[in-house]
Simulated scan of single mutants.
Amino acid sequence: MSLARILLDSAATTALVATMALSAPSARADEKVSIMVGGYEKQIYLPAKLTEALGYFKDEGLDVELLNEPAGVDAENEMLAGAVQGVVGFYDHCIDLQAKGKFVESIVQFSQAPGEVELVSAKHPEIKSPADFKGMSLGVTGLGSSTNFLTEYLAVKNGLKLGDFTSVPVGAGTTFIAAMQQDKIQAGMTTEPTITRLLKTGEASVLIDMRTMEGTKAALGGTYPAASLYMQTDWVEAHKDTVQKLANAFVKTQKFINTHTGAEIADKMPKDYYVGDKEGYVKALDAGKAMFTPDGIMPEGGPETVLTVLSAFKKELQGKQIDLSKTYTSEFVKNAK
Rank of each mutant, 00 (worst) to 15 (best):
L3Y: 05
A4F: 09
I6S: 10
L7E: 04
L7T: 00
A12H: 06
V17E: 06
A21T: 08
L22C: 10
A27R: 11
D30R: 11
D30Q: 12
V37C: 04
V37H: 00
V37F: 00
G39M: 02
Y40A: 04
Y40H: 11
Y40F: 10
E41Y: 12
K49M: 14
A53E: 15
E69K: 07
N77D: 00
E78Q: 06
V87A: 11
V87N: 11
Y91K: 06
D92N: 13
A99I: 13
K100C: 03
K100H: 14
F103D: 15
I107H: 10
S111V: 01
Q112Y: 02
Q112V: 02
Q112E: 10
G115R: 04
E118K: 02
L119R: 02
V120T: 05
S121R: 03
E126G: 01
K128S: 11
S129P: 03
D132Y: 01
S145W: 04
T147L: 12
L150V: 09
L160D: 02
L162C: 10
G163D: 12
D164C: 12
V170E: 05
G171M: 09
T174A: 09
T174Y: 00
T174F: 05
T175E: 00
F176L: 00
I185C: 03
A187Q: 01
M189N: 07
T191D: 06
T194L: 04
T194D: 05
T194C: 10
T194G: 03
L198I: 03
L199G: 05
T201G: 01
T201M: 02
T201H: 02
T201L: 01
G202F: 07
E203Q: 13
A204E: 00
V206A: 04
M210C: 08
R211I: 02
T212D: 07
M213S: 13
E214Q: 13
G215F: 01
A218T: 15
A219K: 05
G221W: 01
G222F: 07
Y224P: 03
S228A: 10
Q232K: 15
T233D: 11
W235E: 13
W235S: 15
V236G: 09
A238M: 09
D241K: 08
T242L: 11
V243S: 06
Q244I: 08
Q244F: 09
L246T: 02
L246F: 06
H260N: 11
E264A: 10
E264F: 08
K268F: 04
M269V: 14
P270K: 15
P270S: 14
K271P: 06
D272P: 03
G276E: 13
D277N: 13
D277Q: 07
E279N: 12
E279W: 05
G280W: 14
G280C: 13
V282P: 08
K283W: 11
L285A: 08
D286M: 14
K289A: 15
A290R: 08
P294R: 14
I297Y: 00
M298H: 01
E300Y: 02
P303K: 10
P303V: 07
E304M: 05
T305N: 09
T305V: 10
V306R: 01
T308S: 13
A312K: 10
K314R: 15
K315N: 10
L317N: 07
L317G: 06
Q318C: 08
K320G: 13
Q321N: 15
L324R: 10
S325K: 15
K326T: 15
E331W: 07
